[in-house]
Amino acid sequence: MDMNAISRSVAKLARLELSEEEVTTFSDQLKQVLTYIDQLQSVPESSLGAPLYHPLELPTLLREDQAKTPQLDSEGRPSMLSAASQTDGLIGTAYKVPPIL
């Protein structure tokens, strides 16, 4: 397993930019952790059953989908927008991002 190559490819998937120094450091640390985690492969297949994704395994609860009047901030916009960058993050009540194409 070329850990440096894996770190670079996984960083790309996770939208993380790593310096070469970070790639080396993280790769060494991740290799150490993965070596430890590999003990999971020693659990006998015969003892394994269905995976447990959540401790309670309850049916999904749904609530009524009700529209609520949004709270407004001091500038009269929905307050959920107020955490966006105030200098460059909004156009009216829309989020502003760099071009995607």
């Binding site: 966006a84 960058s85 460059d88 993050g89 989020y95 502003k96 991002v97 760099p98 995607i100």
Partner: peptide
């Protein structure tokens, strides 16, 4: 985009997403 700090000089008008 919706919250959090943007590094200084990072603009929504330049570069790509």
């Amino acid at each position: 985009v919706r919250f959090g700090v943007r590094p200084e000089g990072l603009s929504s008008s330049q570069g790509d997403l």
